[in-house]
């Protein structure tokens, strides 16, 4: 099996502190696919007081230079994202040339499902705080994790493996198999 050099240099080296474990997980995914990213490189002012001082700004989580795209990830419940949506609308009004993609909790869940990591998603719920991304360089099966990094913790568990109901149903057909599309 050939490892492709193009993807061999994770761009996020420098281990930023992530505000949420889900952000660290997304950084790992981007690293995995060789997508260069920067963490919160720009704070866009979106509100000023009468003196002209910035009173509110918006820093999208990632910037992907190759695509000139900002990505904001929120794992808040849909009912709680009103404030973030307002900030994003304001950002788009003030900076129409800036491309921003907002990933909601449902989008992140779909991503985890695609990669067979719904178990990890469960462990991320409610997890916040300082988290650093850890680039996987460990031996197969090992899971490197920074202290408190629940994003890296549990989950090489059967990737893509159907959950119990399906597992029971298909047990007669074949053994457990990992895999995504």
């Amino acid at each position: 099996m050939d490892e492709v050099p193009e993807a061999a240099a994770p761009s996020g080296v420098g281990a930023p502190l992530f505000a949420h474990a889900s952000e660290a997980e997304l950084a790992r995914i981007l690293d995995y696919y060789g997508i260069e990213w920067q963490y919160e490189p720009t704070a866009f002012p979106i509100l000023w007081n009468l003196d002209g001082d910035v009173v509110e700004s918006f820093s999208p989580d990632y910037y992907l230079p190759e695509f000139d795209l900002y990505v904001e990830l929120t794992t808040l419940k849909q009912s709680l994202v009103r404030k973030k949506n307002r900030k994003l609308r304001r950002l788009r009004e003030l900076y129409p040339d800036i491309r921003v993609k907002l990933l909601y909790a449902r989008d992140f869940r779909a991503l985890m499902m695609k990669y067979g990591r719904l178990g990890l998603l469960d462990s991320l719920s409610g997890t916040e705080g300082q988290v650093t991304v850890v680039h996987d360089t460990a031996a197969p099966g090992d899971t490197a994790a920074a202290p408190g990094d629940t994003a890296a913790a549990p989950s090489r568990a059967p990737a893509g493996t159907p959950r119990s109901r399906m597992r029971r149903r298909h047990a007669a057909i074949a053994g457990e198999s990992a895999g995504a599309r």
């Binding site: 995914i29 996987d136 197969p140 059967p158 990737a159 995504a180």
Partner: peptide, 9 residues
């Protein structure tokens, strides 16, 4: 990403 074949990151 996330499959058993992943080992190097």
């Amino acid at each position: 990403y996330g499959t058993a074949t992943e080992s190097s990151g």
